[in-house]
Nucleic acid binder design. Sequence first.
DNA 1: ATGCGAATGTAACGACCGTTACAGGAAAAG
DNA 2: CTTTTCCTGTAACGGTCGTTACATTCGCAT
Lengths: 184, 184
Amino acid sequence: MTKTEDRRQAFVEMAADHLLAHGMREATLRKTAAAAGTSGRMLLHYFADKDDLLKAALTLLTARLVRILDSARLEQMPFQALLPLLVAMMKDPQVRPYLRLSLELAALSADGEESYGAIAREICGDFFDWVASVLKVEREEDRIPLAALAFATTEGFMVLDALNSGSIIADALEGIRIRSSASA
Amino acid sequence: MTKTEDRRQAFVEMAADHLLAHGMREATLRKTAAAAGTSGRMLLHYFADKDDLLKAALTLLTARLVRILDSARLEQMPFQALLPLLVAMMKDPQVRPYLRLSLELAALSADGEESYGAIAREICGDFFDWVASVLKVEREEDRIPLAALAFATTEGFMVLDALNSGSIIADALEGIRIRSSASA
DNA sequence: ATGCGAATGTAACGACCGTTACAGGAAAAG
DNA sequence: CTTTTCCTGTAACGGTCGTTACATTCGCAT
């Protein structure tokens, strides 16, 4: 009786696609069902409720993001080289939707929505671990703090990008260059 | 007949309070009206529609934020000293709700909600100008880029804080210290 | 006092939302 | 073949949303 499980998993995949493409605000039961070619009634046959479905989809999305990041397989690099790369990755159409979604989840969890907050932490945690893994540090005890700083800066770029604030991102990248050359 | 204008302005103030305290998701017409001690029917008598009211409230909030920031009246300081101060300000219960709200607006504008995106840009623009004004730079042409970097980092801290990610913020602050001492 | 426009209450509309009741049909088990 | 269990469509429930129609009251100028 793996038939039921297969069907369930297929629904999760399609819900994840829809979530990634249209965000939480459009992830209503009827709309998600339409995107999956079924009815809300059916989704509630396979899932306890809407939250159950969305949590499964979001969990799948974190796994997908980890797969994408790992497939990049790039070598370690120092902090000031990593930041521009993170910005470039942020604009990569394959990665960008994940960050956009995690921004929405962060905003949701900033209100009371603790159910999605846990998953937002999971997505961001995976991304953070990846940042830490590609960072080249001189002293190993600097890894976590510098990864945290790089992570925060990237999230900030994401907000700027969401605001579509023209040249601010370019200015900030220039700021990184200035700080780097100041330390040389 | 300034009576009508006064009443209207009073509604804007109360809507702004409610917005700041409970965020966009709770800023429904009926709830905002209840918080203002009136009815949704009345709000629509003084405002064209819900968007009209919320935009007026958000515009008022940006003015309020500017006033708070200006009242700090602190002297210029270099980049690595400014960042911890921005983080401290982020935790200031007087400033924090504004940043939380701007995060929600950024997430909204990351979807199609362009109407609120314009106001999100306004709030963030004012905050950005203030950051630029308290930054001490050696060469004046570095001001905008470094302000942009400081701004992005602060927004990133805001996301981390929204995610309530335990010690990551402390780690990132440590990262700033490391980068600063590396350049010394 | 009267009339007129502004203010306000009551109630509803239609659109979505998540969820469920009910029933018919397919499919498997006896 | 019958029965039982799972699948799925239809329709609705109760709720909230933004918005509006209608009616009433109030304030004020004539």
